[in-house]
């Protein structure tokens, strides 16, 4: 086995682990004690230039202004809906933040408990009060298809470098996909939808490993119906 020569590219750290004692700055999820930098969460050590921090491996989704998320309507009030976005706090969606003109008390005519919506995080204030909106291009209620849930920390792998992973999956499977920063992924398509769901599950399982795009691409190609491949080999 030549394994011992291969140095793991990612170093797993736990809270309290020493990240640096040579004078680097503390980045995300790190703190300084007596001039040394320590990890503040379970994750992967992440050093860049003079800063060292931790990329979390799990944990609850914390909304950030501008994030697009997929929410599930959990409760209805006369002038707002309460939306579960997988965060520690419920996100109220006010009637002024939907693309329809809603009369007071008419909320349930537009969105009901269990409905699924694509939203944007409008703002998160200091006390972590969240406001979301449905008034932006592309935001809407979604129906049909499937909703896949995964740790929000793995969402970036589903998207890939400048969207390369998700584009590849969409192109090969001909599915519609929407990735919420909160770890919910919506997939809709014909028979290939199952392949896209499985591809996303592979990304979730193997989020830690490299060459993921290539492997997922090979997986999808191996699962696509015969005729698709024949088309490609026509000449």
């Amino acid at each position: 086995m030549q394994k011992r020569n291969a140095r793991p590219a990612r170093e797993i750290v736990v809270p309290g682990d020493l990240l640096d004692d040579s004078g680097m700055d503390a980045g995300n999820n790190a703190y300084v004690l007596n001039g040394k930098v320590y990890a503040g969460v379970l994750g992967v050590r992440n050093a860049h230039n003079d800063t060292v921090g931790v990329i979390p491996l799990g944990g609850r989704y914390m909304p950030v202004t501008g994030d697009t998320v997929i929410g599930i309507i959990e409760d209805i009030g006369p002038s707002n809906w309460l939306v579960n976005i997988n965060a520690p706090y419920p996100a109220p969606l006010h009637v002024n933040e939907v693309p329809w003109k809603v009369e007071f008390g008419d909320t349930s005519k537009y969105l009901n408990v269990g409905n699924v919506v694509m939203l944007k995080v409008l703002m998160v204030d200091e006390s972590k009060k969240i406001q979301v909106t449905m008034k932006d291009s592309g935001l809407r209620r979604i129906e049909g298809g499937q909703l896949v849930e995964m740790p929000h920390s793995k969402v970036s792998r589903v998207i890939g470098k400048s969207g390369s992973m998700i584009q590849m999956i969409k192109n090969l499977t001909d599915c519609r996909m929407f990735v919420g920063q909160n770890g919910r992924i919506w997939i809709d398509g014909d028979e290939n939808a199952e392949i896209a769901v499985e591809a996303v599950r592979i990304i979730e399982r193997e989020a830690q490993s490299s060459n993921l795009t290539e492997r997922v691409e090979n997986f999808i190609k191996s699962r696509l119906p015969e005729k698709e491949e024949n088309k490609g080999e026509g000449y």
């Binding site: 599930i72 309507i73 959990e74 579960n84 408990v113 269990g114 409905n115 699924v116 979604i142 129906e143 049909g144 298809g145 499937q146 909703l147 919506w186």
Partner: peptide, 14 residues
């Protein structure tokens, strides 16, 4: 600790 809401998409898919 609230009642669990199953999304319409999940219900329809099942």
């Amino acid at each position: 600790m609230s009642e669990h809401v199953v999304s319409e998409i999940k219900r329809d898919h099942i």
